[in-house]
């Protein structure tokens, strides 16, 4: 196994724009090893844009993203190396539609390991079983439900046992029971794989169920206005915008 980089993320004075439109500025935060770190905020506050900057899809306009102390955007070779140590579960699952679930999970293994075909098949079965999709390896994404697609996406995200896993709105579009099961899965994966997890969401039940650290982004301030454990923020935050969000506008 090749040596992986320290799975700690740090943002320093990060600014993100779309052309002339400023989305976020002056973001400073740190994700510690083993955290389930929540990026929360209302719709349109820039959560997904921030995620893109963290996973190599959008270059920041200013500031730095550091992985294990190394500048993620400074060097493409280093960036590729870091990206092999991260997994991403997209909002829609983002499974490749012309691949079966098994092929979706197998692709990262085929690309970045020297395992034999039978070893890869075994790992694929294991990963699918971990997310409750044992026996679905030969199904195509179009043949399964939205919740199952998300879980299959998660199986692909953890194919290479990444040290950091990003979740983009994992509960979006799921019924409450499926959403809770996915939350439990996130906790299990953190415990079993020892992964650091970053969850972008505005679903309060998920935020309180899984998060142990968080930042709160505000669309008007165009930056983060709170940081800390979501439960602590609920009880101790003096910022009315944060309290309003965390209490669904009831306080």
């Amino acid at each position: 196994m090749e040596k992986k980089l320290l799975p700690v993320i740090e943002a320093r004075e990060l600014s993100l724009n779309y052309d002339d439109y400023m989305v976020m500025r002056g973001l400073n935060f740190r994700v510690n090893k083993g955290d389930i770190f929540i990026v929360m905020g209302g719709s349109g506050c820039g959560k997904s844009t921030l995620l893109k900057a963290l996973i190599g899809l959008k270059e920041p306009d200013a500031g730095k993203v550091l992985y294990g102390g190394k500048d993620f955007w400074a060097d493409l070779v280093l960036q590729n190396q870091i990206m092999r140590g991260i997994g991403v579960l997209y909002q829609s699952g983002a499974l490749w539609s012309s691949f079966t679930l098994g092929e979706n999970v197998a692709l990262p293994l085929q690309l970045y390991s020297n395992l034999s075909g039978s070893q890869i098949r075994e790992i694929v079965e294991l990963k699918l079983a971990l997310v409750g999709l044992s026996g679905y390896a030969d199904f195509y994404p179009a043949q399964i439900s939205g919740g199952m697609r998300k879980r299959a996406g998660l199986a692909r995200a953890i194919a290479l046992d990444p040290e950091i896993i990003f979740f983009d709105e994992p509960s979006a579009g799921l019924d409450p029971v499926s959403a809770r099961l996915l939350d439990e899965l996130i906790l299990q994966i953190r415990d079993v794989l020892g992964a650091t997890i970053v969850v972008v969401t505005h679903e309060l039940p998920s935020i309180f169920a899984v998060g142990n650290n968080s930042i709160f982004l505000d669309a008007e301030a165009k930056t983060m206005i709170a940081e800390g454990n979501p439960k602590d923020l609920l009880t101790h935050s003096s910022d009315p915008r944060v309290v309003r969000f965390l209490t669904r506008g009831e306080r």
Partner: peptide, 17 residues
């Protein structure tokens, strides 16, 4: 285009493909 909409192309990029 549909792969772009479904984030399938993003998923390739984050895998370094």
């Amino acid at each position: 285009g549909i792969m772009q909409v479904n984030e399938e192309i993003d998923a390739l990029k984050t895998l370094g493909i």
